[in-house]
Structure formats: structure tokens, C-alpha cells
Design a protein around this nucleic acid. Structure first.
Length: 271
DNA sequence: ATGACGAATCGTATTCGA
């Protein structure tokens, strides 16, 4: 079971790349983020033609997340429970792989955690509302993950977390000091989430360093200089983590024509 | 020469991303 996550930065602008990648990578499940289009504008037919079931939670101009699956998507829910959210950043479903001997199920979420910048606002002691929104979103994700853990199921929370977990996960840590992706409150919230008992796939299977980045800014030659960051993650419940086999980062897509600034990351779970 | 950023939008400038 191959589960991939990719922030495509506009599914319409990226459609040729998305189709090309789906055909070559053949993920069983693909979690997409930053669709930047409403549900009706999602290129559903092109993707269904490749054998995928499609569920979207779209939004005009910003955000938008989707789940693509070669298996049926059941119990689909949109938005994070317990959070009043105007922004389309979360979709979850249960994927059942019936057939063969023991049909199993895995719950999968595609999430697009808020960026959170700017952190501070002028003429005030408190945080800017964008950073408060990020912290609130992370708290709601933690609460929901806690609920899901109580079900004792296999689940995978995949997406663009907009969190650089550690200094090794960025090219120049000093430059990220104070940034919403890297500041102590962000790290603390991310650790609270992981410490519920989740397993972050890539850092569990490998050392993370300058070969495991998942995002390179379009600006200032970030890609040729490998000035990247690792912000796209798979967090696994214990039952999913027991089946974790491998991961991959499809960096070659960053060299394609009209690339996204993120590349697909994927994990493989044993059947 | 240290590298014209890219996408969407009522748009020929602005906002946003990370």
C-alpha cells in the first residue's frame, strides 16, 4: 500500500505534472494539497481515467485538499472536527482494501496545515492572527489525533504540515529563527502531536538531512542551490507504523517543466 | 554579476505562499 502526499500548488496549473506523476509513481492513495480550486473545477475526469476514486474539499484561490485512491473511499469527512474553519485544509476517509484473504482498512487524511506567517504584529504584544490560527489549528489536529488513537485503528495523517521539525531539516537554520515554520511554539505543538504516540515515517526510517527536503522556494535559485526544507510529513498510528516499510521522495519532479515548489513524498505499508 | 518566483484574480496591480 503506497500512500503519497503532494502539495501541488494549484491542481489546474499542475495537471500535466500530476497526471504524469500518477502514471509513473502509481500510488494506491494520493493526498493532494493546495488545489486552489472549488470542487466543481477539480479535474476529476482526467484523474478518474487513471483508475482513481476522487474526494475533494476545494476552495477558490487558496487551500483545497483531495484524496485519490485506487480503492473505495468511505466515511469521508471534511474539515477538522472541533474547529470552525473557513479554509479547506483537511479531508479524511477510510480506505478498505477488501479482496485477497484478510481485507484491511486504513484511515487516511490529507491535510494542509496553515503557514502561520507573519508571527508578530506591530503595536501589540500578542501574536498576529495568522500565527494564532496556526497554533489553534495544530491544537485541533492534536485533539482529533487523540480521538482517532482511541479507536486503535491504522491511520495515516499525511500532508503539508508547514513545520520544519529540526535544524537538520533546513539548509540554513539560522535564517528560520523566529519563522512560523520553525519557532519554539510550533516545535512544541508538533511534538505534542507526535508524542501522543504517532510515528513520523521519514525520520523513523532514515537520518534526515539535505537529501530529505521536500520543498524548495521558487525564488533565488533555491532548487539548484539545494536550499530546501522538509515540511511534508506522514504521521502514523501504531498499527500503521507496525506496517511501515519504506519511504521515498520524488525529487525529480522538481526538475519538470512548471514544477510545484513541493515534491511528492510517499510511504509503503505492508499488506 | 550569487541567479527575473509563481498562481490566482475582476487584474495591466495585488495578495499570498514558505
Amino acid at each position: 500500500m503506497k500512500i503519497a502526499s503532494w502539495n501541488v500548488n494549484s491542481v489546474k496549473a499542475r495537471l500535466p505534472n500530476v497526471l504524469r506523476w500518477l502514471e509513473e509513481a502509481q500510488p494506491d492513495i494520493a493526498c493532494l494539497q493546495e488545489l486552489k480550486c472549488v470542487d466543481d473545477a477539480f479535474p476529476r475526469d482526467d484523474i478518474e481515467a487513471l483508475g482513481y476514486n476522487v474526494e475533494t474539499h476545494g476552495q477558490k484561490t487558496y487551500n483545497g485538499v483531495a484524496l485519490l485512491s485506487k480503492y473505495p473511499l468511505e466515511d469521508v469527512s471534511r474539515g477538522l472536527p472541533g474547529l470552525e474553519d473557513e479554509q479547506a485544509r483537511y479531508i479524511e476517509a477510510v480506505v478498505s482494501t477488501q479482496g485477497s484473504t484478510n481485507g484491511s482498512a486504513v484511515r487516511v487524511a490529507s491535510l494542509y496545515l496553515p503557514n502561520g506567517n507573519p508571527v508578530s504584529q506591530e503595536s501589540s504584544d500578542g501574536f498576529h492572527e495568522k500565527y494564532t490560527y496556526k497554533l489553534n489549528w495544530m491544537a485541533a489536529l492534536e485533539a482529533h489525533a487523540s480521538t482517532l488513537l482511541s479507536y486503535e485503528e491504522a491511520f495515516v495523517l499525511a500532508g503539508d504540515y508547514n513545520v520544519i521539525p529540526a535544524p537538520a531539516d533546513c539548509h540554513a537554520p539560522d535564517k528560520w529563527e523566529g519563522d512560523a515554520l520553525f519557532r519554539p511554539e510550533t516545535h512544541a505543538a508538533y511534538r505534542r502531536l507526535v508524542h501522543l504516540g504517532l510515528t513520523e515515517a521519514v525520520s523513523t526510517l532514515s537520518v534526515t538531512d539535505d537529501t530529505t527536503y521536500t520543498f524548495w522556494d521558487y525564488q533565488a535559485g533555491a532548487w539548484p542551490k539545494n536550499n530546501g526544507i522538509r515540511i511534508d510529513h506522514h504521521l502514523l498510528s501504531p498499527l500503521a507504523a507496525d506496517k511501515l516499510e519504506t519511504f521515498g521522495i520524488d525529487k525529480h519532479t522538481r526538475d519538470w517543466e512548471k514544477p510545484s515548489d513541493h515534491v511528492p513524498v510517499w510511504i509503503e505499508l505492508r499488506d
